[in-house]
């Protein structure tokens, strides 16, 4: 099928884009288009205007000191403390997340998950911001953003604001963004020195929307004990499911090794957290969580460069 008719505007500034979005509530932002255009081709979406933000300078990848640029008062969630951050423009392509060494070094979970997003051809156009704003419950990147406590920069008629990514998705394909707001940047806390991450997902075919996917990142102290774990699952709830607390409480934090009973406890904790999910997804979530914990831990015990396969 062909796309339904619409007006096309290539915005030259965020302000111009926002003003068009403000003027017409049926207008829509076009980022990479890899999810929106299929919906339109099925005539399931009929936007009046597509506001293309490709010409905006939103493809930057920059490692900065600390999260000091984030306005904690507006963000609504916890702000990462100390260390470095990576600022990623909303239009950074998923293929860049997958292949850019600085992303793999700074946010290995993001790089690992990106490899599972769609297919090589869609990742060359699909964007980080588009994925987050589309809020597909099966998408990997929103879960990674929730797990890592990323903070988004959102521009609306009143100017920019900060928003914790955990507050972005509100339900199936629904976000807390106003119709005239644009997601322009996402800031992830950078990995510490002894950090490991793993993305594990399963679907009947690789590249399909996952039946469940779990991302885990751990930090170790000098003695090799896990000091912190963050985790989230996609595809098991209307919004990314934060598993960090459940896994920490299962005894992962403080562990210096992962004996079988601990992995089983981690699986049970994740399965229980996902118990509201349809079918047998909860069990799968538990399996994937245990595997992701094991692999993240394994990764943290090696120099980071070796983990990226």
């Amino acid at each position: 099928m062909k796309l339904p008719p619409f007006e096309y505007l290539r915005a030259s500034s965020a302000a111009e884009a926002v003003s068009v979005l403000s003027a017409d509530e049926d207008s829509k932002v076009l980022a990479g288009g890899q999810s929106l255009l299929p919906l339109m081709a099925l005539r399931l979406a009929h936007p009046t205007v597509l506001v293309d933000i490709a010409a905006l300078d939103l493809a930057g990848v920059e490692v900065v000191d600390g999260p000091s640029h984030i306005d904690a008062s507006s963000c609504g969630g916890p702000v990462p403390k100390g260390g470095k951050s990576i600022r990623l423009g909303a239009m950074v392509r998923q293929s860049v997340l997958e292949s850019e060494p600085v992303v793999a070094e700074t946010v290995p979970l993001l790089a690992a998950a990106a490899r599972y997003v769609g297919h090589p051809a869609t990742r060359n156009l699909g964007t980080l911001g588009g994925s987050l704003a589309h809020a597909d419950p099966a998408a990997e990147l929103p879960a990674v953003a929730v797990a890592l406590g990323a903070v988004a920069v959102v521009v609306g008629p009143a100017g920019p604001r900060h928003l914790a990514c955990s507050l972005l998705a509100e339900g199936y394909f629904t976000t807390s963004l106003a119709p005239d707001e644009i997601l322009t940047e996402i800031c992830f806390p950078a990995a510490g020195p002894r950090h490991g991450a793993a993305w594990c997902e399963w679907s009947p075919r690789v590249g399909d929307f996952a039946e469940a996917g779990v991302g885990v990142a751990v930090d170790l102290d000098g003695d090799g004990a896990i000091t912190a774990i963050v985790a989230a699952a996609c595809s098991v709830a209307p919004v990314p499911l934060d598993l960090g607390t459940a896994l920490a409480d299962a005894g992962v934090v403080g562990a210096t090794s992962l004996p079988d009973p601990l992995l089983r406890a981690a699986a049970r904790a994740a399965e229980s957290a996902a118990s509201g999910s349809p079918g047998d997804k909860a069990e799968l979530t538990g399996l994937l969580a245990a595997r992701a914990v094991a692999r993240a831990f394994q990764g943290a015990r090696k120099p980071i460069a070796e983990v990226q396969t």
Binding site: Y8, G33, L37, D52, N124
Partner: peptide, 29 residues
């Protein structure tokens, strides 16, 4: 498929593979 799922329409856009059914001609300008 014109739904972005099969890859028969692949072309190189600035040297990288994309699905040409998921690119607006105007957007590729």
């Amino acid at each position: 498929c014109e739904q972005g799922a099969c890859g028969a329409c692949n072309v190189l856009l600035d040297g990288r593979v994309v699905r040409s059914c998921l690119v607006l001609a105007a957007g590729a300008s």
